[in-house]
Amino acid sequence: MENFKTIREVASLWKKDKQQYVKQSSLSAYSLILENHILPAFGEKQQLAESEIQDFALRKLQEGLSQKTVKDMLIVLKMIQKFGVKMGYMPLTEWCVKYPTEQKKQELEVLSISHQRRIMQYVINNFTFRNLGIYVCLSTGMRIGEVCALKWGDINLTTETISVCRTIERIYIIEDNHRHTELVIGTPKTKNSVRDIPMSHELSKLIRPLKKVMNDDYYILTNEANPTEPRTYRNYYKCFLKQLGIPDLKFHGLRHSFATRCIESQCDYKTVSVILGHANISTTLNLYVHPNMEQKKKCINKMFKTLK
């Protein structure tokens, strides 16, 4: 083991190599996982043992982290090990982590139809540019970073579409022992997230008179050359809901509400997936397609009719 490097050393070399291929925001997320979780647990080790990784995963779950969060950590650890083995910095050790069975599937938080209607009508009656952003999200399923980065020039009145081609996010920059945050405007989450979304007639009617007199280079939430950042807009949204007397709902719940309304309206799943910018349709199916008991009964009855 004399020629092997520690996980900390391998991770540092892996990050330098990885930054050539991934977005700055992705590298930032990897860095946070490393600094906060992986390096404190494994940093000084030269090889990984399955029992230690299993204990690490269970400990993180007991601390209240979700299985997805823990799995994301282990994905980063796997990538570091793969890089280390390939470069001859560490030995190959096979490991497979087991997770406790999740007893209850977490329900998606979405607006009720009555609350969604109330919000959309309120925006029409009480127009501000920030309120418009909430209406846009409920009409298109855009993410908060995408709507914060939306410019008037991204709206095409001829085709009645909105082009999603950038996003804003505040990321952590870790340099040696110094940490700071930085607001970054970049490309959306994945290549599928770059998309054109049709506007509803209602949204088009709301935007059309504004678009004609606006500067295409201005952001729609501020109507200025400078954007608002997601954290600031999220705080505004919380106050907005409180003002309307609507129960607290995460901003991402607007996206979930849009998708849920689409599925409830029997839109085909592939179309919904493309509008949302999901990497594949399975993400849409897993998140939003949950047949109720009535649908299950109809399915079984239909099957038996074919037997007769």
Rank of each mutant, 00 (worst) to 15 (best):
N3P: 08
K5H: 10
I7G: 03
L13W: 10
D17I: 07
K18P: 06
S25T: 15
S26V: 14
S28M: 10
L32Y: 08
L34P: 01
L34Q: 00
P40F: 12
F42C: 03
F42H: 04
G43E: 04
Q46G: 12
A49G: 07
F56N: 02
R59E: 09
K60N: 08
K68G: 05
V70K: 04
K71H: 05
V76S: 03
F83H: 10
M87V: 07
Y89D: 04
K98F: 13
K98D: 09
Y99A: 02
V110M: 00
Q121S: 07
I124N: 05
N131R: 15
G141P: 00
I144G: 00
K151T: 12
I155R: 01
E160G: 08
S163R: 14
T167K: 08
Y172M: 13
E182V: 14
E182G: 08
V184P: 05
P188L: 10
I197A: 01
P198R: 07
R208E: 06
P209Y: 11
P209M: 11
Y219F: 15
I220K: 03
N223D: 09
E229C: 14
R234M: 06
K242G: 02
G245E: 05
P247N: 03
L249Y: 00
H252W: 12
I275C: 01
I281E: 01
L285A: 04
V289R: 01
K296G: 03
K298V: 13
N301M: 13
M303Y: 09
L307M: 10
